[in-house]
């Protein structure tokens, strides 16, 4: 049986209708990632350059080899492997060993994308698959963060908050307070002068890139807006009810991978819903899960897993939110 043709017929989410526009759109995504790339190179220097190059090169090689081995039409010209490599590198710690970065890129392209049938058929965002795989495979390397500029080992802002929360729960309030003093100022978090993954620290650079994508019409405002909005509203409620004030929601919006997740990963054309209503549900779900994982879960950060989990239910969301124009009228017998 020819799988290729049957996949084209039964694809439940025909996200990409005009294949000519894919390379151009991917080029725009790369352009939109440039500000974050510059910020990353500035704050993390050579470490950043090495990891990004490794991820992109390995991703491109895997894409080419995979298509050849699986005897499928070459797909390298659509630029999507470069985007996956870049996005994966952006969610890795600066000090990650290069071989781990390389394995992550290979897993992202081979297991995350090509085994599902290539771009357009993958259920999950490939870069996030790569990251989730690495987090479970080499947790020590994936949770060792270095500070910007000088590169000494440090904790991420979300890591500090989680640790302080655990200390509080163990009854060591003094140590918790001491730890909270290490939190960076909100201004540093906005420009990216904090510990964290290579491309996620500078919220400002990511917002500029996100706005460019919105302006070019490649992404729908609904997902990033509802995603960030849900996180903001939920953390405002938590912040006000625990007496931490408006500092708390601002902190959560700027911290971790929320900006890169909301603008560049949750909006992935292939793995997010196609209906308008569906996109709002998707954003709400991502926001809710992110806040739940950050405040109640074991991991300090939940953007990666919340987007992956919502990717899982994307076909379901599409199914229940698609317009009924061509559907059968319900029989009220």
């Amino acid at each position: 049986m020819n799988n290729e043709s049957s996949l084209l017929l039964v694809s439940s989410s025909p996200h990409i209708r005009n294949t000519d526009s894919v390379p151009a759109a991917m080029r725009d995504v790369i352009i939109a990632l440039l500000p974050a790339l510059v910020a990353s190179l500035y704050f993390f220097r050579m470490a950043s350059l090495k990891v990004i190059l490794t991820c992109v090169v390995v991703a491109v090689i895997c894409e080419v080899v995979c298509r050849k081995v699986m005897k499928r039409e070459a797909s390298i010209h659509d630029n999507s492997a470069i985007v996956t490599g870049l996005l994966l590198a952006f969610c890795l710690p600066p000090a990650v060993p290069l071989w781990i970065a390389g394995i992550g890129a290979a897993v992202a392209i081979i297991i995350g994308k090509q085994l599902f049938g290539g771009l357009g058929n993958n259920i999950y965002n490939p870069a996030l698959i790569g990251r989730a795989f690495l987090t479970a495979a080499w947790p020590v390397y994936m949770t060792t963060w270095s500070a910007p500029l000088d590169g000494v080992t440090t904790a991420t802002p979300l890591g500090i908050i989680k640790e302080a929360g655990k200390l509080q729960a163990l009854g060591d309030a003094g140590a918790a307070q001491e730890l909270m003093k290490q939190l960076p100022a909100l201004g540093d978090m906005l420009i990216g002068n904090i510990g964290g993954s290579l491309g996620e620290t500078s919220a400002l650079a990511l917002i500029i890139g996100g706005l460019y994508l919105l302006y070019r019409g490649h992404i729908d405002w609904r997902i990033p807006f509802t995603y960030i909005g849900t996180v903001f509203i939920l953390t405002t409620i938590i912040g006000l009810s625990t007496g931490q004030g408006m500092w708390y929601p601002l902190f959560h919006v700027l911290a971790g991978g929320l900006m890169i997740g909301a603008f560049f990963m949750a909006t992935d054309w292939v793995t997010s819903p196609i209906t308008k209503k569906g996109r709002i549900i998707f954003g709400l779900g991502c926001g809710l899960l992110t806040v739940l994982i950050r405040t109640k879960g074991g991991y300090p950060e939940g953007v990666c897993y919340s987007i992956l989990l919502m990717n899982t239910v994307t076909p379901l969301i599409d199914r229940y939110t698609k317009s009924r124009v061509f559907g059968r009228v319900k029989n009220h017998a």
Partner: peptide
């Protein structure tokens, strides 16, 4: 233990 502060704290507790 590297990257297992919570477990280390629990045992110590």
């Amino acid at each position: 233990i590297t990257s297992a502060t919570i477990t280390s704290k629990a045992v110590t507790e």
